[in-house]
């Protein structure tokens, strides 16, 4: 079973085509980096993957569930970390996660156990009772990743999750999420930063709503640095 399958997906904001026949597949347990400059269509793709909006053009399958035909089942398999932070700053880490657990129908001890488990995965268990406002940017992001894992999704979507973080926090989060993929989670990681991508990762390069390349990073770049290949493909200059 594939983790994520996107087939001929198109979307337009009025006359502006944001996505044009986008197709790619991410196998279960793979780390797929979706690389594209600002305005490439990454956030639009994420909005479609999370059903914030829908399109009649194309299809999305998550862990075997068609998002249009069985949205409940498909959404239950997704964990999402949005580009914008979506934590309630005045609530504790635990209460933020408890709220999210309830939105997925988890309550009581079952929810507490899942919350503890996902916080431990992200080394955040000791901060469970701290208010989010007191956390630094890196810890807030880890909290959001932990939150996205509570309901045991098989696919984790992250939309530029390292924006605004310092180098050390960025590296730690990239490491954490790679290790989650090694444990069997399918990961789609949108970014415009080439240093977050490893040679063995699947790499999808998106530019102006179209896919320019889709293979392992190693195969796409060959002996060249990814930054150079990316700038060449997208026609940008360093």
């Amino acid at each position: 079973m594939t983790g994520l399958r996107v087939q001929d997906l198109s979307f337009a904001y009025g006359p502006k085509q944001a996505l044009d026949a986008v197709s790619f597949t991410v196998e279960q347990g793979a780390f797929c980096a979706l690389l594209g400059p600002n305005g490439a269509g990454k956030s639009t793709l994420f909005s479609l993957l999370t059903r914030l909006f829908t399109t009649p053009d194309g299809s999305i399958e998550i862990a075997g569930h068609d998002l249009a035909k069985a949205p409940g089942k498909a959404l239950a398999e997704i964990g999402v970390v949005f580009q914008q932070q979506t934590l309630d700053l005045d609530l504790t880490v635990h209460r933020n996660l408890k709220y999210f657990a309830a939105l997925h129908g988890l309550s009581g001890r079952a929810a507490d156990a899942k919350i503890l488990e996902s916080l431990e995965k992200l080394d955040m268990a000791e901060r469970a009772n701290e208010k989010v406002r007191a956390l630094n940017g890196g810890h807030r992001r880890r909290t959001e990743i932990a939150r996205a894992l509570i309901h045991g999704p098989s696919v984790l979507l992250l939309d530029e999750p390292t924006v605004g973080l310092d180098a050390a926090s960025r590296a730690a989060i990239v490491d954490h999420v790679h290790s989650l993929a090694q444990d069997g989670l399918t990961v789609l990681w949108a970014t415009h930063l080439t240093d977050e991508i490893r040679k063995q990762d699947q790499l999808v390069i998106l530019h102006q709503g179209r896919i320019l390349a889709n293979d392992t990073a190693q195969k796409i770049t060959g002996p060249n640095p990814l930054t150079d290949v990316f700038l060449d493909l997208t026609g940008a200059t360093a």
């Binding site: 059903r51 914030l52 409940g72 498909a74 959404l75 949005f82 999210f100 939105l103």
Partner: peptide, 8 residues
Amino acid sequence: RLLLTSPL
């Protein structure tokens, strides 16, 4: 967004 991506 968090609310609207719930499977409910």
